[in-house]
Structure formats: structure tokens, C-alpha cells
């Protein structure tokens, strides 16, 4: 039996199906990724797994316990890192951790030890007495994670834990997840950053419009794209007409524009690249950079949905 089983779970808000019959399993000790763009339904899914929202239908079983019947027992082994900085900005880091520790039923010496341990994990022992609103975004994120570790959960559910932070803090968080996982913690890592999911997760479910559109190991997902490459071309002034011409070129499977770069999924990138450059050149488009990547989760998503992850 898997450590966590999500069986046909659904949630509607009015007419909007936020989560539509999603099922997946997470094995004990693995880092499972939920990858999808903003608004895909990941946070709603997390809210249901963490007992905050009641599903319209479906079941969640964690550690052999049904969520509907054993919510309190499940809460004791579950740590949640919300997407928002769910801390009290006018309290210090230590005061926040003490509060969250108490919410998990800790007290006395054990509480003090766990607070020190959490501060160490966050790498913020020296700033323990500073108010949270004096922290940088990255530091807040680290305390946000530390608060979820106070009760030594068996499973840690992280909802977009690196949104809006500096590379240094991001690296610290990713290293923390790896370390916790090595110590035996099961992790569900939700993100729309393909690189993070690719780096951390052993298995991944790709979520879009409330549904799991693909799931498996990284290798299994890459196979969905087949022998396809991603061509990234930085262009200063590509018009819609130019993009349309490229899109109609033989070999182009999908095309999107992101941050001023044209992203093309294609079979036989070498041959196609010459054609695309020729089109851009003929239209007097200024090419700033060219890069060819082998298939990755981004290209998997693009292949499955026709959209980039950050669209």
C-alpha cells in the first residue's frame, strides 16, 4: 500500500471544476512533484489533502488512514508549507515557531529544542529575535518551512515554497528538501518551476485545468515527447506574422513566446533551426540568442497542452 493515495478526488467552486477526478499515489520516502501552471488546481488539491477543504467526491488515504474519518491522526503526521507566508509578521521568528509548536501540542523543553532545531534548519539562528516583517522574502520562506517541521511530520506538503525569492534562498530550500528526504521524510512538492521539480522529484504528476494530464518518473514523462528538442530563440522584434510563418514550417510541433523568447518544440532541431533563422533573417528580425535543449518537463507540458508552463 502506498503512503498516500488520492482516489478520484474532485472539487467545484460554483461552475468551476477546480479539481476534476484526480488520482495518484505517493510512496513512503519519495519526493513527489505536482507540476502545473498557476491556477491549475494544485493548491485546491493540497487544501483537500491537508483537511482544509472537504472534497466533493473521492478519498484520500494517508498512512493507511482515511482522511474523512481520521483527520486528527493524519494532522499529527502531516506538515503543511502554504504558498503564502503564513506567519505573524509582527512577531519574531522564535515567537512564531513557539506558537506553531504549541499548535502541534509541543511544550516545555521539547518545544524549546524543536524551535532551536527549526531555526537551524532555516539557517536563521542569528536572526531568531528579529520580527518576521524585517526579514527578506527568502528568509520568510525559510521560516515558513521551518514552522511546518516543528512536530517532525512524516509527510511534508510544500505548496510553491520558492515563489518570489532570491537564488540563494531557493538553493537553501532545495537543499533542505533533499536533506529532509534523505532523513526519510516523504515530500509532496508543488511548483510551476519545472527546474525545481525536475531536480527534486522522483515521480511527477502534471496538473492542468484541474486534471492530471500525465504522471510518472522524469524518464517516463520525457518519453511522451519522443525525440523532440526545444529551440529557444531570443528575438527583439518578431511580429505575429513571423511567428505564424514559423509555426507553419514543417517540423514545428508547437510554438510559444515567453519572456521575449520564441520557444519551439520540434523534431530534428538542427535542420529546422536553419530554416527558422532564415525566416527571421528575411523579415529583418534581430536575433539575440539561440539555444537548443533536449526534451524536459517544460517541453512535456508544451507538448501536452500547447502552452508554456508560465503562460
Amino acid at each position: 500500500m502506498s503512503f498516500l493515495e488520492v482516489k478520484g478526488i474532485s472539487k467545484k467552486f460554483g461552475d468551476l471544476k477546480a479539481v476534476d477526478n484526480i488520482s495518484f499515489e505517493v510512496e513512503e520516502g519519495e519526493v513527489f512533484g505536482l507540476l502545473g501552471p498557476n491556477g491549475a488546481g494544485k493548491s485546491t488539491l493540497i487544501s483537500m489533502i491537508t483537511t482544509l477543504l472537504k472534497p466533493d467526491s473521492g478519498d484520500v488515504i494517508i498512512n493507511g488512514l482515511n482522511l474523512g474519518k481520521h483527520a486528527m491522526e493524519i494532522k499529527e503526521i502531516l506538515g503543511l508549507v502554504p504558498q503564502e507566508i503564513s506567519l505573524y509578521p509582527t512577531l519574531t521568528a522564535r515567537e512564531n515557531l513557539v506558537f506553531w509548536g504549541r499548535m502541534y501540542g509541543l511544550k516545555g523543553t521539547q518545544l524549546k529544542e524543536r524551535v532551536d532545531e527549526a531555526l537551524e534548519i532555516a539557517g536563521l539562528q542569528d536572526r531568531a529575535k528579529d520580527r518576521i516583517d524585517k526579514y527578506s522574502g527568502g528568509m520568510k520562506r525559510r521560516i515558513n518551512i521551518a514552522a511546518a517541521l516543528m512536530h517532525h511530520p512524516k509527510i511534508l506538503i510544500m505548496d510553491e515554497p520558492t515563489v518570489g525569492i532570491d537564488p540563494q534562498s531557493r538553493n537553501h530550500i532545495l537543499e533542505t528538501v533533499v536533506k529532509l528526504n534523505k532523513e526519510g521524510m516523504t515530500v509532496i512538492y508543488t511548483s510551476h518551476y519545472m527546474e525545481e521539480v525536475e531536480f527534486l522529484c522522483t515521480r511527477i504528476a502534471i496538473v492542468d485545468h484541474g486534471k492530471v494530464i500525465a504522471k510518472g518518473t522524469k524518464e517516463e514523462l520525457r518519453k511522451l515527447v519522443g525525440n523532440r528538442d526545444t529551440i529557444n530563440i531570443g528575438v527583439a522584434n518578431a511580429s505575429d506574422k513571423v511567428l505564424s510563418t514559423i509555426r507553419d514550417t514543417n517540423g514545428v510541433e508547437s510554438l510559444s513566446v515567453e519572456d521575449g523568447k520564441i520557444k519551439i518544440i520540434a523534431r530534428g532541431a538542427d535542420e529546422l533551426l536553419a530554416k527558422v533563422i532564415s525566416i527571421l533573417d528575411s523579415q529583418r528580425c534581430k536575433i539575440q540568442s539561440v539555444n537548443v535543449e533536449q526534451s524536459n518537463l517544460e517541453s512535456v507540458f508544451l507538448h501536452l497542452t500547447g502552452r508554456a508552463l508560465r503562460d
Binding site: 491537508t50 483537511t51 482544509l52 486528527m72 503543511l80 502554504p82 503564502e84 506553531w100 499548535m103 512536530h151
Partner: peptide, 15 residues
Amino acid sequence: RESKTLGRIMSTRVG
């Protein structure tokens, strides 16, 4: 509620 802190409290042992 907006920062999901109430939700986070609900994810602990607090009913």
C-alpha cells in the same frame, strides 16, 4: 485568513 494562516492552524491539531 487571507494569508492562509488560519488555514495553517487548521492543518495542525487544532479543530
